[in-house]
């Protein structure tokens, strides 16, 4: 049980690194958009590719943070009914719910992988004021969903052996 906790924490550390990357991308996005506004009014010009880069950054921001959100228990669920059930039953339900999450995102990660492979095969490009290949972003989307799948599996295992997951911290809930 202790080693399971260790695994969960180590995995959480990996997710946090991904989160830092996503956070840095968010900050970069803010900077580019502001720079574009400033360039427009101060120099009557624009930052080349501001829109293309913003578009490309958003999937990275979202999918590299999905699993971290689950790690911190931030995806919204309703517990008023299950809280009133006997402990073993509510525990079993929660394991099933977490496995359901693994099924959905395992499926989506695989589907996303197929789409990324296709994108790589045809050399899909973002074409605008600047150009860049799209397939790395599509692989990142698939990777992010795979990360989430693993997190769901770890959490299901944790609940199954009776380890409490940390409760949702309200500050992380929109």
């Amino acid at each position: 049980m202790n080693s399971l906790l260790t695994v969960r924490l180590a995995y959480g550390q990996l997710l946090t690194y991904c989160g830092w990357f996503a956070g840095a991308a968010t900050f970069a996005m803010m900077t580019i958009v502001v720079a574009n506004v400033v360039a427009r009014y101060a120099f009557n010009s624009s930052v080349p590719g501001a829109m293309e880069l913003t578009e490309g950054a958003l999937p990275l921001i979202i999918f590299l943070s999905l699993a971290l959100t689950q790690f911190h228990g931030g995806h919204i669920r309703v517990s008023m009914l299950t809280d009133r059930l006997p402990r073993t039953l509510s525990q079993a339900l929660l394991v099933l719910a977490l496995l359901a999450g693994a099924v959905l995102f395992g499926w989506a990660a695989w589907a996303g992988w197929l789409s990324a492979e296709k994108s790589l095969a045809i050399g899909e490009m973002k074409r605008g004021s600047i150009r860049y290949p799209v397939w790395p972003i599509k692989f990142a989307v698939s990777f992010g969903m795979a990360l989430l799948t693993v997190q769901f599996l770890i959490d299901a295992l944790c609940v199954a052996v009776g380890m409490p997951l940390q409760d949702a911290d309200p500050e992380e809930v929109e």
């Binding site: 010009s45 624009s46 590719g49 829109m51 074409r127 605008g128 004021s129």
Partner: peptide, 21 residues
């Protein structure tokens, strides 16, 4: 305003500034 793959180059050839929207 520019979009797609041909307009950015054409707009630059006009000595204008392509803005992707």
């Amino acid at each position: 305003r520019s979009y797609g793959f041909a307009y950015p180059a054409l707009i630059e050839a006009m000595k204008a500034i392509p803005v992707s929207l």
